[in-house]
Design a protein around this nucleic acid. Sequence first.
DNA 1: AGTTTTGTCTACTGAATTAGTAGACTATAA
DNA 2: TTATAGTCTACTAATTCAGTAGACAAAACT
Lengths: 152, 152
Amino acid sequence: MLSQKTKYALQALAYLAARYEEGTPVLIGTIAKEKNIPIKFLEAILCELRNEGMLVSTRGRSGGYQLAEHPKKTKLSRVIRAVEGPIALLSCVSLNFYKPCENCNQETCCINPVMAEARDAILKVLDKRTVNDIKDDQECKVVKPVPMSKVR
Amino acid sequence: MLSQKTKYALQALAYLAARYEEGTPVLIGTIAKEKNIPIKFLEAILCELRNEGMLVSTRGRSGGYQLAEHPKKTKLSRVIRAVEGPIALLSCVSLNFYKPCENCNQETCCINPVMAEARDAILKVLDKRTVNDIKDDQECKVVKPVPMSKVR
DNA sequence: AGTTTTGTCTACTGAATTAGTAGACTATAA
DNA sequence: TTATAGTCTACTAATTCAGTAGACAAAACT
């Protein structure tokens, strides 16, 4: 399960994506209020996303946060990795946070390949879906399938 | 990420699956030693799996645990749900542990459908893979694909 | 230039979960 | 009948999660 923090991150990005075309920074306070997120907690989350290069911030008056690039460019897998950490079910099959198991032998462990299969299945979705797919104020109850040719 | 507890559960089942044909109970102590799992912790885990009907236990001398049914019958999704809980990334898209979000509106939330898509992708793997696929002492580095016709 | 608005950063805290332990108790086979 | 093995309840230490507080820094508007 994703943590509350990751959920907040996704919600904030969904909001910023909807306002991406405006081209101006959005106040933390506005996002917090709109999405019902504790402002100080959101602050820390947005700061992390900025450090990861997903957001840009403007300080001072009329400052705030905005997406660093078009919402279609930011994959959900990247967001989750930044806030939550590994996407794989076990660290021994993680692509970005690999760590061998302590009590089992990689060579003979038969759990490993099945978990790798599961990881690939999740990533197939989270690598093709972007912030644009979760943005606010759109018809979204039916997610339109993305043709595999569009997935790089 | 799966918890240590779930990993232990899978490892124990992998061991029991390999010894399923023997038809006799296996000591907790044997599994604990073989798999490097703290015995008292394993005890609690096996007890849970028994309560879920995946294992049967025999008390007293020459007692122990064994699989309740053929390893092919026990889906990994069932194991994970029993020990870990929901498989979905958000509880609002969980099939077995559904709980609505507190701070977002199900009707307008666009994160929901994407997460449902991810859930289906994971379940497609965890519903078709069984304890038999992870059992010890087999060639398993290459997981043979299961034809979709075999998946119910 | 000064003040206000807004973001940044560090540190702290309470609650929940995870991982593991201890020990009394109960059932069964030899 | 006794040793062996599982059952059950309760406890605890460590870690993570979720959220808070407050000092500080940058920028814009006056």
